[in-house]
Computed example of a mutant assay.
Amino acid sequence: MRALRILLVLVIVFGGLLVAADRFAVRFAQGKVADKVQESQGLDSKPDVSIKGFPFLTQVVGSSLDEVDINVGGLTATAGGHSVKVTEVRAVLKDVAIDSSFSSATAGEASGSARLSYTDLGQAAPKGATIGYAGPERAAKGQVKVSGAMTDVLKGADIPVPGPVEALLKGLDLTAYCTVSLKGGDTILFRTVDIADLPVPGLDDQVKGLIDEYALKIDRMPATIKLDRVAATPDGLQFSGKGTNVPLTG
């Protein structure tokens, strides 16, 4: 009986050592992958990498990881010299084929996501305008609302406003609805689909042109994170995308 107890203790201790070794190995690998992603993608800071699945070492032996989650933290988007935060930039990579040194890896399946709040978005909106939620019906069509004092928007865009026109527009607010789309996975485009009637002929076309020229470029979007869809939610713009055979490191 005493020998059995000793054997059980040895098994538990040995098992604990194996678990500890496995966890040490996964932490080491996560750091190495984070370094590679930062270097290959040109990121300012090291991303947070989490390798899922247990045990880790058996995955390494099989040269395939079940899942790797990468959180880049915050990136920036720029428009007209203004920068805003893009938050919750994340990639979930599955069936990741690796080599023994983690110098290269390819995900069989990948999904990416990011978020841009209306508050942050407003910091880079055309001067004098704000961008916000357009309501559930329009949001379902991928639309947002652009609004602001008409004279402020025109002056912010350096559009001449003669005295008589300014008097006519005094107290009038701009209300326009725009669709939002992604180009190239890193550029947010706005296209006006509906704008309230304005009392000055041709002014609505000028305002529409101003909005349609507005674009936000997300700086240094990692190639690992593929974004091709955008949804307008009550809190902001939610980006997502999926890909196959996506390289994790270069």
Rank of each mutant, 00 (worst) to 15 (best):
160 P>Q: 09
133 Y>W: 14
87 T>G: 10
74 G>R: 15
190 F>G: 04
136 P>W: 01
204 D>S: 15
118 Y>W: 13
234 P>T: 06
241 G>H: 05
58 T>S: 15
10 L>F: 09
160 P>H: 08
143 Q>F: 01
146 V>H: 01
6 I>L: 15
203 L>M: 09
125 A>W: 00
147 S>C: 07
203 L>W: 02
236 G>D: 07
21 A>C: 08
47 P>D: 10
171 G>E: 10
107 A>P: 02
5 R>Y: 11
247 P>R: 13
58 T>E: 13
246 V>P: 04
111 S>T: 13
10 L>E: 04
117 S>Y: 11
174 L>E: 02
123 Q>K: 15
166 E>V: 00
133 Y>D: 09
209 G>R: 06
91 A>V: 14
143 Q>P: 01
210 L>A: 07
16 G>D: 07
158 D>K: 06
170 K>T: 07
169 L>Q: 01
218 I>E: 00
79 A>N: 08
133 Y>Q: 06
157 A>C: 09
54 F>C: 08
87 T>I: 04
212 D>F: 07
1 M>L: 09
197 D>S: 13
55 P>A: 11
124 A>N: 02
243 G>V: 10
119 T>E: 14
228 D>V: 10
233 T>A: 12
216 L>P: 02
86 V>Y: 04
138 R>D: 04
46 K>C: 02
166 E>D: 12
108 G>T: 06
82 H>G: 04
218 I>K: 01
113 S>M: 12
167 A>G: 13
233 T>H: 06
23 R>F: 12
36 K>W: 03
183 K>M: 06
211 I>S: 02
42 G>S: 12
156 G>W: 05
179 T>G: 15
192 T>W: 02
199 P>S: 07
43 L>S: 06
